[in-house]
Amino acid sequence: MTLLITVFAAIIATYKWYTRKDDTMQLGILVFMYWGASIMWFVDAIFEFAELKAEYFTPAAEDMLNDAFLGLAVVALGLVIWIVRLLITDPKGSVRAALRRQA
């Protein structure tokens, strides 16, 4: 479930990156982060499948819920990292402009 949610996040981020107008939103970081995690969880899934065989595809409801919750938390963490980086690098100068106005 975590793998699935991360793969969907990676696909959405890649689509948004592909249809972007310019690079100011720095979507590339999200794309690489989610694809990197997806590949790593894919390997994890292969090893787990090798161990559990068909049982891998019939997880307990509680485990699935926990994994889904984890997947959403991972997507949220990725978004937090991206937004913090965007605000710090401030490519549009919006943060600097806002700070100058308040000063």
Binding site: G28, G36, A37, V74, L77, I81
Partner: peptide, 14 residues
């Protein structure tokens, strides 16, 4: 680097 580090950070969270 972005693939490796991004993946590692999210996996560390797991």
């Amino acid at each position: 680097n972005a693939l490796l580090l991004g993946g590692a950070v999210l996996l560390m969270f797991e």
